[in-house]
Design a protein around this nucleic acid. Structure first.
Length: 573
RNA sequence: GCGGCCGUAAUGUAGUGGCUAGCAUUGGAGCCUUCCAAGCUCCCAGCACGGGUUCGAAUCCCGUCGGCCGCACCA
């Protein structure tokens, strides 16, 4: 048997069909794993739990966007710049270094990552940067791209990237979603899907993958109303916090955490509670779960505040599996700016307000012949003039506007100054975003590790996967005590009834009965039904429970209901 | 990406240049067996990949891929 707990869990996962290294016959590739028959079901269980909480209970809208994404999206999001780290290598010992870090350490003020390669080379020379290992000279800087790049369309098609997070698809669809929710904030939109990062060095099994699974929620909210309608219901929930700059985990209610300023606001706090609920219902041990706040220098540039949900792993220590970020208005602002599509919401007044507006309007009959093709742009520039300049223009002989960076003089005859009273319903604003972002693969590993229990039975090592009912890949094992005397036929009939009732059930008649229980325990199957000789007389069977190994006699006619109501009603919804 | 260690069946392993690569568990077929990995018989299944050295390579050398650890990087 393998030495470490991690090795034993992984061995089980591989042997029993949870996880396989991808492409094994061809030698494999780091950072890719297949989900086997049981792993795929476990993953589905986690995803269904997410849907139950966020889509059903919270009313979030689930959407699904392409993984292949046009370049512009990630230019706007900052990923093209962010995932392109400049690297230099020592020409002597080949050690690679982050060039921007070297230059900033050597005294450069500013964000060196934004510099061009040539500028980095020049600065490295000027600042006398040498290899930290051996003191050797560096070669030319190059970019280490962490996004998978591809081409859209044949030949010299459009540049595309495989998305490094599913979030951007939601942001880009914001205008549609705003209308879908009938222009009422707050609303949440979520997406379950694959994301891709060409990691330099994937390690730690399924914890750091090049292709991985995310479940992300983007909650769009008015930054002036960072409260939550249902916060009162959850304020007594106790969570374990590790606030920034502190060394110790403190446990307190989420209500106290907000009152004491540990968590910035109710809205963010509410989602910490939902994350906690999902993780613990999935089977992560609450005692090995904490919420850690990012240090100020650790936060992404768009984030105002970030909390990570971390589980404790025997092998890897505290591992992040969910990030709950306050992304502020960053993403929508960027997409509005780069795409030209407004990404706004309206904060309505209680009663619409009347406002006096002064506008400069073109007189098309005069302005058209004067400016010809530019007339449209000039008209827009006139309209955009602020109130004071519009007032001044009324009495002047002409007015100057900037069109395409040039000054243009418009004679008085070509415009009118119009004063009118308009009714305004509210102010435009860019919504803020609170983002709980779940790493499915990491959660799945955490669930495996925290469910994995080793005991002894009759002096022999014995393994049980104590998965929550809602997570169990296989729900019921059905066995004849002996595969003969008609017991097998009865058991098969029960199997088919359970399957028809929507339960994932497995028939097994091989080996001794204890061996079959052991097989089911090892993959976390909560119940086993055994048909024995009495069954033929009394039309009932034994239902054996995984964790207690207790047995109960249940009549055939009650069996389906007996088992079905034990499984969470939402398991396959 | 760098350095160290490593790669034999689904899993855990034995095998230091020479027979059909051994063992255990698992899995399969069967016998037996009236509720927690019993026993017996038989069977399936392996030297990561590619080169090289050699009469001969699982074994030695090189490369690739993969794993673990450290460094670096990083949600």
């Amino acid at each position: 048997m393998a030495d470490g707990l991690y090795e034993r869990i992984f061995e089980l996962a591989k042997r029993r069909g949870f996880l396989y290294p991808s492409f094994e016959p061809y030698g494999g590739a780091a950072g890719f794993y297949d989900y086997g028959p049981l792993g795929a079901q476990l993953k589905a269980g986690i995803e269904n739990l997410f849907r139950r909480i966020f889509v059903v209970e919270e009313g979030c809208a689930e959407i699904s966007c392409p993984a292949v994404t046009v370049e512009e999206v990630f230019v706007a999001s900052g990923h093209v710049a962010k995932f392109d780290d400049p690297v230099v290598r020592c020409q002597n010992c080949r050690s690679p270094f982050r060039a921007d870090h070297l230059i900033e350490e050597a005294g450069y003020k500013g964000n060196a990552a934004l510099l061009k390669n040539e500028e980095i080379d020049a600065l490295a020379k000027k600042l006398g940067v040498k290899c930290k290992n051996c003191g050797g000279p560096f070669g030319a800087a190059y970019r280490q791209n962490l996004m998978f790049k591809t081409e859209i369309g044949p030949g010299s098609g459009k540049v595309g990237y495989l998305r490094p997070e599913t979030a951007q698809g939601i942001f880009v669809d914001y205008p549609y979603l705003y209308r879908y929710f009938r222009e009422q904030l707050p609303f949440g939109v979520c997406q379950i899907g694959r994301a891709y990062r060409n990691e330099i060095s994937p390690r730690q099994g399924v914890l750091r993958l090049r292709e991985f699974n995310q479940m992300e929620v983007e909650v769009f909210i008015d930054p002036q109303k960072l409260t939550h309608a249902k916060f009162a219901r959850v304020q007594g929930t106790r969570l374990r916090f590790l606030p920034k700059a502190s060394k110790e985990i403190v446990e307190m209610t989420i209500g106290d955490a907000v009152a004491k300023g540990v968590v910035a606001n109710e809205a963010l706090a509410y989602y910490l509670v939902l994350v906690d609920r999902l993780l613990t219902q999935a089977g992560i041990d609450p005692k090995r779960l904490r919420f850690r706040q990012h240090e100020d220098d650790e936060k992404a540039h768009y984030a105002r505040d970030t909390w990570d949900a971390e589980f404790q792993s025997e092998r890897f220590g505290w591992v992040e599996c969910v990030g709950i970020a306050d992304r502020s208005a960053y993403d929508l602002t960027q997409h509005a700016k780069l795409s030209g599509t407004p990404m706004r919401a309206v904060r309505r007044y209680e009663t619409p307000q009347k406002r006096e507006v002064v506008q400069v309007r073109s007189v098309p009959a005069k302005l058209g012949p004067l400016f010809k093709k530019e007339a449209g742009a000039v008209t827009a520039a006139l309209l955009a003039l602020p109130a004071d300049r519009a007032e001044a223009a009324a009495a002047a002989k002409e007015v100057e506007v900037i069109v395409d960076g040039r000054k243009v003089t418009v004679p008085r005859a070509a415009y009118d100054v119009v004063r009118e009273t308009v009714t305004v319903a509210g102010d435009d604003y860019v919504p803020n975003v609170i983002e709980p972002s779940f790493g499915v693969d990491r959660i799945l590993y955490a669930v495996l590790e925290h469910s994995y229990v080793e005991t002894t039975k009759e002096g022999e090592a014995y393994t049980v996967l104590r998965l929550p009912l809602a997570m169990a890949p296989m729900q019921v094992g059905v066995f004849p005590l002996m595969p003969k005397d008609g017991l097998d036929a009865v058991a098969l009939d029960l199997l088919h009834k359970l399957q028809a009732a929507g339960l994932r059930a497995l028939y097994d008649e091989s080996g001794a009965i204890g061996r079959r229980y052991a097989r089911m325990d090892e993959v976390g199957t909560p119940y086993c039904v055994t048909v024995d000789y009495d069954s033929l007389k009394d039309q009932s069977a034994t239902v054996r429970e995984r964790d207690s190994t207790k047995q109960e006699r249940v009549r055939f006619t009650d069996l389906v209901d007996h088992l079905r109501r034990r499984f969470s009603p939402f398991r396959d919804s």
